[in-house]
Nucleic acid binder design. Structure first.
Lengths: 206, 206
DNA sequence: TTCTCGATACTGCCCTCTGCAGTATCGACG
DNA sequence: CGTCGATACTGCAGAGGGCAGTATCGAGAA
């Protein structure tokens, strides 16, 4: 593999995991699914390429080991890797970005039926509920996977939890509103302007 | 351009906008920035390629117009496009996905200093505050850009608003917690286990 | 009248990233 | 001895991002 590009956030994310302990690529892939996946999702495929770039840049070392005929690569962070990671922490983070196909379907719901809209909102609720359960299970897991990092895990889990709660309560609220509409194109007596005013923080007289 | 791939969510998202009215690619790009960008962000570059694929598939038509020497392409949805969009609304949406580099920096904060962590949280707060102001401005805008779609805008804006509020209050909470820590690696008397238990919904005795 | 500058209207290029298929070994269990 | 899930990867095509580059239009300034 010839590497031309510069370091990406993905590079630093993996460097961060390597700062915790050594990993094989396979382990790294599993660990990313469990932790980083919540706020920096990357396909497993990428996690096999990226560590090689870290090695090329002197931020990590690769050690080939073998179990019988089958080889594996263990990655370890270098002092330069730790320094690079620490520097990166000072840089302003890129803006948050959300991909939410369900919301696209809600936004263009006027091209379809109320049933479709309600079904989409139901699925959004289900997903949020599932994730809340997952987060609760992670918080309840004992022993704690990396006890020396429990404080950071707690901070991170809290964010995810609040996010899911926000989506869940929004979806429930939205379902209630929509049952008041005549159709997806006609909200009937439902007062859109009033809703917008409320969001704008504006007072309106009855 | 030769198109081989199938339709993506981006295809349907643009189809959704075309269901509202006709657009030139340039207008489409601007409109995506204002609306879709909140929950389906795509680079402007992509928005010049995608409509061509819609035309190839018979979901839209392209009309070349000109202002003097400068040409432009106006896209219009076809009846088949409307039907395709309506069908798509029935399919289960892809899972939500968040890219949050700031959270990566928080998660690996133990590789750096408390000041770095507090600075990152400060930037996260600033970003959330900025977006909340933007959302309020959009909700306050009069006249309403597409009045016949005000109810869907109101539903969508509410979600974004709640999301930003959740991030904002989390960041403020996190800052308070962190001031109680001895360092990024040592939370001191701050009780990580208790925090995790709370998230797990578990009761714990004092 | 000419010049500048922001808005309009794109294309090319290189890189990142995804998703899926494909390949192969290891170790436990039947 | 065979199967099956876990381990440990690679190749490839297509989606997507970011940035530089090109060119015209129209309004206001010099």
């Amino acid at each position: 593999m010839t590497t031309t590009g510069a370091r990406t956030t993905t590079s630093y994310a993996l460097l961060g995991l390597l700062a915790v302990r050594d990993w094989t690529t396979y382990e790294l892939a599993k660990q990313v699914k469990r932790s980083l996946n919540w706020f920096w999702p990357r396909a497993e495929r990428k996690l096999y390429d990226e560590p090689k770039r870290l090695v090329e840049q002197g931020l990590a070392t690769a050690t080939r080991e073998r179990t019988g005929l089958r080889g594996r690569t263990v990655y370890r962070i270098t002092p330069q890797g730790r320094a690079t990671l620490a520097e990166w922490l000072s840089e302003p983070p890129a803006p948050r970005s959300i991909e939410f196909e369900g919301m696209v379907k809600v936004f263009f719901a006027d091209a379809g039926s109320p049933d479709q809209l309600l079904a989409t909102l139901g699925r959004i609720e289900d997903e949020a509920n599932g994730r809340i359960a997952e987060l609760a299970a992670m918080a309840a897991a004992r022993p704690i996977p990396f006890p020396q990092r429990a404080h950071l895990s707690a901070i991170g889990l809290r964010l995810q939890y609040e996010q899911e709660k926000a989506v869940l309560s929004w979806a429930r609220w939205a379902r209630k509103q929509i049952t008041q509409w005549n159709s997806t194109t006609d909200p009937g007596a439902w007062d859109s302007l009033r809703q917008l005013d409320e969001l704008a923080g504006r007072q309106r007289r009855q």
